[in-house]
């Protein structure tokens, strides 16, 4: 077992496109819950909508990359509107139940064999990233940490999208628009009594967070060139919540750093455990079980965070979305 290598592997997780995707999706959740108090338990659905919206339009209708991107964004916005209309006037937990149900509906639909020709059912879709790859400005070769030019390219693009989104969210949240949202998070009737159209603000927040989720779905799938429905189960949403709570829910940097910590710790525990098992130091569990142990730890971490440090690593306890 090589500790140094295991640490390097964990560090490497910081910059993967997947970490970027988790950070971006969790940033969407921060817009929803951290800033507006909306309980979205269906962020996996938004990611799936983004990924499939892009993949299907690219493969089925042969649209150019940019159109596929727009379709993903528009589809996610429509999904948000569809969910928001019945629920945003109701108690917060209704939105939670409706979003989790809607995300599962999306997953069932892209999994069903009936739509095999369109969605590829359980196998998913692949090879929709070709046009994206043709935009790669970096010539073949090795970059920084020995990345290939494509690895380097997808990382640059992924993190550019994340950083741009983070700046936009930051700008939005320090504006009077963001102030209204923060007011709604605490007491929407008070905000209503001051003449603000609460429903419309909640809808805008739901759409913006959903679009971030859809973009995250693209960051999640385009680099690897394939999308599979099994990846978009409710567990994904719960992992994103863990990421959000890890970093701090009412912050812009929190979700991104939360994603880095999440993946680094997952990689660290996985590699340490399998290292220990292979070297014979640990005999009572198998490598497969080691993989499950990590997710037991995620659950325990989520509980402990919520109980002992609900503001996360970066959050300000005084600004928590809930007392």
């Amino acid at each position: 077992m090589d500790i140094g290598n295991i640490l390097l592997l964990a560090l490497g997780e910081f910059l993967t496109p997947t970490t970027a995707a988790y950070g971006l999706a969790a940033l969407g959740l921060a817009v929803h819950f951290g800033y507006s108090g909306l309980l979205n338990f269906g962020q996996a659905g938004f990611m799936a909508i983004g990924a499939y919206g892009f993949a299907i339009s690219t493969l089925q209708f042969k649209v150019p990359f940019i159109v596929g991107l727009l379709i993903a964004v528009v589809a996610a916005s429509l999904f948000a509107l569809l969910l928001g209309v019945p629920t945003l006037r109701l108690r917060a937990d209704y939105l939670a139940i409706v979003t989790i149900a809607a995300a599962e509906i999306v997953r069932y639909i892209v999994t069903t064999n009936t739509l095999f020709r369109i969605t590829g059912s359980a196998d998913g879709l692949s090879s929709f990233q070709r046009e994206f790859d043709t935009f790669n400005p970096f010539p073949a070769g090795t970059y920084i940490f020995g990345w290939s030019n494509r690895d380097f390219y997808v990382r640059v693009i992924s993190w550019a999208v994340v950083i741009l989104s983070a700046v936009i969210v930051w700008l939005l949240m320090r504006s009077p628009w963001g102030r209204v949202l923060k007011g709604i998070r605490e007491d929407e009737n008070a905000v209503r009594s001051l003449g603000k159209n609460v429903y419309s603000y909640k809808m805008q927040a739901l759409v913006i967070g959903g679009i971030l989720g859809a973009l995250a779905g693209l960051l999640f799938t385009i680099p690897r060139g394939s999308v599979q429905p099994a990846n978009y189960a409710t567990d994904l949403t719960f992992f994103l919540w863990t990421v959000l709570l890890l970093g701090g829910m009412s912050t812009v940097l929190g979700p991104i750093v939360g994603a880095m910590i999440f993946w680094a710790v997952l990689s660290l525990t996985q590699n340490l455990l399998s290292g220990l098992i292979e070297s014979g130091a640990v005999t009572f569990i198998s490598t497969v079980q080691a993989g499950q142990l990590r997710f037991i730890l995620v659950g325990v971490a989520l509980m402990l965070l919520m109980v002992y440090r609900p503001q996360g690593v970066f959050g300000n306890k005084k600004e928590l979305a809930f007392a």
């Binding site: 923060k182 007011g183 998070r185 605490e186 009737n189 928590l320």
Partner: peptide, 10 residues
């Protein structure tokens, strides 16, 4: 409001 509604976290 009868039960005061200020935004404690603002």
């Amino acid at each position: 409001f009868q039960l005061t509604k200020v935004m404690g976290k603002l």
